[in-house]
Nucleic acid binder design. Structure first.
Length: 392
DNA sequence: TCTGGGGTCCTAGGACCC
DNA sequence: TCTGGGGTCCTAGGACCC
């Protein structure tokens, strides 16, 4: 049976919420992200800002150079965005029961078989857009195709507020003229390897032999690219997938050498990770320290514990000992953070894992406050408030 | 230009075991 | 004394995605 997959992508999600909630900002360039003049990037920006060449992940300093006076710069309000996201996903459940949320502003739906009930794919897509409009007053771009890749590229092809349906017969004609960078897994490193061979489009890639692709990209990636160039990709939708890791990290406003500050920040990160792990009823065996040194040199160090943990202090102690085992003392640190993973059951009989202690907010909050105080004494009140995430 | 934060998946080498 | 092949786990790094 041939499947029908729909991809839904909210338009300039964070910026659209800001413009929805601040009518006076409509029609203006709006940038959600870091504060101009400080370290950081654009999370997302309104279409008015995109006209100046600004886009997600651009350094905020560069964006500020390009954008005119009168541009609105705002810090993300993640709680509000998350609330809107939940409403959108609930609305989509009304279109098809098989919804896979892939990020705060994107989802795949399995709409196979809905044609007999609802009508052609265009009508199903319109239904999704209308449901989102009703739920949160935002627009989305929708793509429908025979698999995830085609549905995603279809939604990307007309933005904002687009609706694009690609039939199985239309797949190759749709794909061939596209730049090869649209293929999943072909990014800033892989694309030049193909471009050096004189390839530019997906059609060019399709004409290269499987053997040549595997030589260039390795067996696995080469095969995947070969299949994608023919429009062959996963056509399943996975409604719920369990997360595999929890992490917290922060980039300092200025590089840090003070070990006390590094320690306090790592303690804060460990408390955040531990709290979230307990909240989700998880314990992990693998603690990973992440550090980024000046100029932009990233390292990870990890340790597998003999028993799984969700304890703030154990996560912290492990991460700090990983730090101390390295000759990093005195070096300028740009970023520090910690992750926890390794709770998947390896058939080792640890069945009591999820009966672990509940989150302990009181204890947690008190210690967290102490740590945050230490950090904010250095960097000011606004620091370490909320995350920032890149959104289309 | 000067590069956030949260993730996933893959590769590759070495340890260790049979 | 010099030596196989395979499997699994651990660790570090990197590419990529949103």
């Amino acid at each position: 049976m041939t499947r029908l997959v729909m991809h839904v992508d909210l338009d300039a999600f964070y910026a659209a919420i800001e413009q929805r909630d601040h009518p006076q900002w409509r029609g203006l360039p709006v940038v959600v992200g870091a504060e101009p003049g400080k370290r950081g990037v654009v999370a997302t920006c309104s279409y008015e800002a995109r006209r100046y060449g600004v886009h997600s992940a651009m350094p905020i300093s560069e964006a500020a150079r390009r954008l005119p006076p009168g541009t609105i710069y705002v810090r993300p309000r993640m709680e509000d965005y998350a609330r809107a996201s939940r409403r959108v996903m609930a609305a989509l459940e009304g279109v098809s029961p098989v919804v896979e949320q892939v990020s705060i502003d994107e989802a795949y739906l399995d709409v196979s078989g809905l044609e007999r009930l609802v009508g052609p794919p265009e009508v199903i897509g319109q239904q999704a857009k209308a449901a989102i409009g009703e739920a949160v007053g935002l627009t989305a771009s929708v793509g429908v195709g025979p698999n995830r890749l085609i549905a995603k590229l279809a939604s990307d092809s007309h933005k904002p507020d687009g609706l694009t349906v690609v039939t199985p017969d239309g797949v190759q004609g749709f794909l061939d003229p596209m730049p090869l960078t649209v293929l999943r897994g072909v990014g800033v490193k892989t694309a030049p390897r193909l471009q050096r061979l004189g390839l530019t489009t997906v059609g060019d890639v399709r004409r290269l032999s499987l053997e040549a692709l595997r030589r260039q990209l390795g067996a696995r990636a080469g095969t995947q690219v070969h299949l994608q160039a023919r429009g062959i990709a996963d056509d399943r939708v996975y409604p719920a997938s369990e997360r595999k890791s929890i992490s917290k990290e922060t980039t300092f406003p200025e590089d840090v050498t003070d070990p006390v500050l590094l320690r306090d920040t790592l303690r804060w990160a460990a408390q955040e990770v531990g709290f979230l792990a307990r909240h989700e009823g998880r314990k992990g065996a693998l603690v990973t320290l992440k550090i980024r040194l000046r100029p932009f040199e990233t390292h990870t160090r990890s340790r597998t514990l003999s028993t799984r943990t969700a304890s703030d202090s154990e996560i912290f102690r492990t991460a700090w000992s990983l730090f101390e085992a390295e000759p990093w003392a005195g070096k300028a640190v740009r970023l520090i953070g910690v992750g926890l993973s390794g709770w998947e059951d390896a058939c080792d009989g640890q069945t009591d894992l999820f009966a672990s202690e509940a989150p302990s907010p009181d204890h947690h909050d008190e210690r967290l406050d102490e740590t945050l105080d230490a950090i904010r004494r250095k960097f000011g009140k606004g620091y370490l408030q909320r995350g920032l995430s890149r959104r289309s």
